[in-house]
Amino acid sequence: MSIGATNARPFLEIKDLNVRFETDDGIVQAVTGSTFSLEKGQTLGIVGESGSGKSVTSLAVLGLHRTRSNAKVSGEIWLDDEELVTASDEQVRKLRGGKMAMIFQDPLSAMHPYFTVGSQIVEAYRVHHPGVNKKVARERAIDMLARVGIPQPERRFNDYAHQFSGGMRQRAMIAMALVNDPALLIADEPTTALDVTVQAQILDLIRDLQEEFGSAVIMITHDLGVVAELADEVLVMYGGKVIEKGPAVDVFQQPQHPYTWGLLGSMPRLDREVRDRLNPVKGTPPSLINLPQGCAFNPRCPYAGRNGDRSFTETPELRGDIHKVACHLPAEERTKIFQQEVLPNL
């Protein structure tokens, strides 16, 4: 593995990623011009609602779009100095589950119902360690089950996914993802299907494991609370584009994009006094087949059109130093609106 000293490229670097799907209804522009990077030991939170492109981004990194003949991916994905968009299927397959692994939302449907949980973990291990015999792989799987906090791992090894509780199932899924010590772990809504107390356990587990293994983690979720728990950096996506990006503290304390304000305003929060009303974003998310001209958020933005009609004609670029935002509003005006109109209602 290369060390940063000789090479300036971050561990994971995504440059101008575009993902399109050709469907009968038209071209779905799932991700447009996404650019970000991530170092080992860091956690990146990707936030967005359904259809924002957050999950498609992760599928593209893992190369899982490759089996879909209607998918078109362009741009660059660099993982540890290896470019993945132009790499061969076989090259990407070898990385998948090895150097980069993924945890999915619903562990019940993400595990095969006909194979024991243990055998599925063994399978994941052996595909990347072809010389290893079954007995060793089995021990490794049992170790992993124990490591993620599953009691009686020898016995649970032979159980099927449906015999596990929701939380235990997600632990098993994590064991399966971590069995090959991945350097990059992508978690796509890993706690959405779980109860809060179980969610707290799983988030705790992911945090511990990251400390232990030093992997880079991408946490994809719609829940701002979950992101705030784990992420060092936050990426807010809307309509397939990154619209705000920055250190977690900045994004939560000084959110810049009106959509981010809307997301925060939509959430009732336990750490604040009860508000009379919530302040949601009006309207509904756009269709990825027919994105609005200019800024994709303009139909729902209360400030669109404030400074001429640029919002309706020109796509705003993601601009800024550490904390970047894609919005036509001038920085001072944004700050003023946030302080005077938004913050008091959060």
Partner: peptide, 14 residues
């Protein structure tokens, strides 16, 4: 326990 488990959207208080 239930209330303390709810993640709070504020990384400063993390």
């Amino acid at each position: 326990a239930l209330m303390s488990a709810v993640p709070v959207p504020d990384p400063v208080r993390r």
